[in-house]
């Protein structure tokens, strides 16, 4: 079927199997490679994107359900290299990534989390985000989210 959707700022139409996971449409058809495959079962969160502002694990999300919706990927989180999203700024400041593979998913989850938590505690973060990182960057992820929350509160950018 024809799937019409907006990915980041661009409206596009793709011919794809309706049941194909959205992840493969984003990666292989729209050629946006920042969203990653990790488990294929919605457990690890490497494929996290926002659909109409909601956090979604795209490896389990059938492409047809994204029809006429707006998808934001890691590439669309920032408004260009000069204006990083405050989550990305915090990630850079804290130097979170090691292999970096899971980090786009974590940043998408963190951006979503911070919409709902203005002043999160470490525990809020630990209980809300279940993504998996195998390099063990968790201590820095927590630090970066706390920092991002502060930045956001001070600068009130969204």
């Amino acid at each position: 079927m024809k799937i019409a959707l907006k990915i980041n700022t661009e409206a596009s139409t793709f011919e794809a199997d309706p049941d194909m996971p959205l992840l493969w449409l984003i990666r292989d058809e729209a050629k946006l490679k920042g969203t990653k495959f990790g488990c294929g079962k919605g457990i690890c969160g490497a494929c996290s994107v926002h659909i109409d502002g909601e956090l979604v694990r795209s490896c389990l999300y059938p492409a047809h359900m994204a029809h006429e919706k707006a998808v934001t990927t890691i590439e669309g989180l920032s408004k260009g290299q000069d204006r990083l999203h405050f989550v990305q700024q915090a990630w850079l400041e804290v130097q979170v990534p090691q292999c970096g593979y899971c980090q786009p998913g974590f940043m998408m989850a963190a951006a979503d989390f911070l919409k709902r938590h203005k002043n999160p505690t470490e525990e809020d973060i630990q209980n809300s985000i279940s993504n998996i990182c195998r390099c063990g960057t968790y201590p820095r992820i927590i630090k970066a989210i706390l920092l991002a929350a502060q930045t956001k509160n001070h600068e009130s950018i969204d």
């Binding site: 946006l32 490679k33 920042g34 969203t35 990927t73 890691i74 590439e75 989180l77 920032s78 290299q81 990083l84 990305q88 990630w91 850079l92 130097q95 979170v96 990534p97 970096g100 980090q103 786009p104 940043m107």
Partner: peptide
């Protein structure tokens, strides 16, 4: 490699 990894 931090920046390219943060930008995806």
């Amino acid at each position: 490699d931090a920046e390219e990894k943060v930008l995806g």
